[in-house]
Amino acid sequence: MRLSKKDKLFLLSLLPLATSVLALLILIIFAILLRSLQAINKFGLELLVSSVWSPEQEIYGVLAPLIGSLATSVIATLTALILSIPLAIAASEYLKGFIKNVFSSLIELAGGMPTIIYAVWASEYLVPFLKTYVMEPLHRLLPFIPLFSCKPITGFSIFAAGVAIGISVVPYVTALILESYNSIPAMYKEACYGIGAYRHEAVSILLSLSRPAIVASLLLGFARALGETTIAVTTVGSSMYLSSCLFAPGYTVAALIATQFANANLYMYAESVLYTAALIVTVIATILSFYGSVIMVRWRSRIVV
């Protein structure tokens, strides 16, 4: 389609603002990279294989927060998976009219809620609940499994942070799953009923049809969980001790940055180390988001005949 002169002018007027956002993104990543170099040059791989935060002595190692970020995100993704699929199915298949609208509005509302609300709620109510009804029973029943081997002391742990972050990304993941489930062409739904499927059988066929899209939604959810900060700060327990037990307190990169950044400029390398940790998380999140988006696009092109 050829653009008219006026359209070209209009497009030209949009370009500076539109490109400045992209440029800003690239600049941010570039800045993070630049600020990390000092720590990377000084400590090298040592940063990634030890878990110490001792700015007074200028000794650093971010293994525990990195593992913590990945572990909480895995737990968060599993939590989101367990909660989002029933939510999405109920919203798209079983609820009708007014109730469906109320339900959808509630999901949107939950998605738009500031994370500080989740954070306060999680530290006041969710953590004690999980400690009493999930962590302690699991520890009593299966103490020989390393993941459950430690007695939950306060409840503030990798596990609690994972579940809390998972709950906060449920609206996002549900919206993604719903979008892909609802974008399945009607002809496949008709195909299910045309061969005598009951509703639950049709749902199960359509869910298996949208499996790649669900995986992609979870990858995007994982990337979002990696960056979640406020909830992590209030629930993870803030400990640099690396444990194989999920019920022990830990750290995440986002929580480490949030709690240490303000004073980091007092020391020679602390700030740069934080930038390095941020760089690693940014790279992981970008790769996952990109991969998730690729899966989603491929899936869409495959189901549309």
Partner: peptide, 9 residues
């Protein structure tokens, strides 16, 4: 149906 709709997966 009018349009062939085998399950693609």
């Amino acid at each position: 149906f009018q349009t062939p709709n085998p399950f693609p997966h």
